[in-house]
Simulated scan of single mutants.
Amino acid sequence: MIQLHDLQFEPYLSEKEINEAIDKLAEQLNRDYEGDTPVFLGVLNGAFMFASEIIKRFKGDCEVSFVKLGSYEGTRSTGDVKTLLGLNQSLKGRRVVLIEDIVDTGNTLEEINEILKKEGVADYKVLTLFFKPEAYKKSIKIDYKGMEIPNKFIVGYGLDYDGLGRNLTEVYKRKEQ
């Protein structure tokens, strides 16, 4: 059990389980992008650990960029996605792999979808470590899913609760009261 701010969290996914999911995703990406030079576009802050691991396992040439958006206050999505830090390179005509830590409502994805359309990318695929199918409300295809999980609030492996917990190498879920 761990305490972050005012909430308690209990162990949920081990580092081993997370690494196994990342290995499988990396195998798929290596197959699908063999001979290509994709741009991996990580969504900060949450995806930094996942992005690092995926990129280390990618066997071909690639470029890396990041975008920062936010929609959370505490444990709830505000529903209002704010662009906090934009792209620092042109993606026109490029193949992009969007790296998300978690997809729940899909609001962030919808915002990034608009950004990528304006950029004129050749195509893009969505890669997420965690996917909450019961929370997902959008129609954007999630191409690569590490793990499907219930709609519970989790921290660790890049995910936080009001800034804490990102550095945990395992994932914890909010303890039910």
Rank of each mutant, 00 (worst) to 15 (best):
E119R: 04
A122G: 02
A135M: 10
T128P: 04
M147F: 09
G156Q: 02
I154M: 14
E134H: 05
Y144K: 03
V155G: 08
P133A: 04
L129K: 03
I142S: 02
L129D: 00
K138D: 00
K141E: 09
Y157A: 05
Y144R: 11
Y136K: 03
D162C: 12
G146D: 04
K125I: 00
G146Q: 01
K152R: 14
Y124K: 00
I149S: 02
V126F: 06
G156N: 06
F131R: 06
I142E: 00
Y124T: 03
K138L: 04
Y136M: 01
F153Q: 13
F153R: 12
L159R: 00
V155T: 13
K152D: 15
I154E: 03
Y144M: 08
Y144T: 08
P133D: 09
K145C: 14
N151D: 15
D123T: 03
A122M: 04
Y136N: 04
A135K: 02
N151P: 03
K132T: 14
Y144N: 11
E119L: 00
K145W: 02
V126H: 01
S139W: 03
E148Y: 10
I149H: 02
K145L: 08
M147P: 01
E134C: 01
P150H: 12
K152T: 14
Y157I: 08
K145N: 10
G120C: 09
Y157W: 05
S139Q: 14
I149M: 05
T128C: 14
S139E: 15
G156P: 06
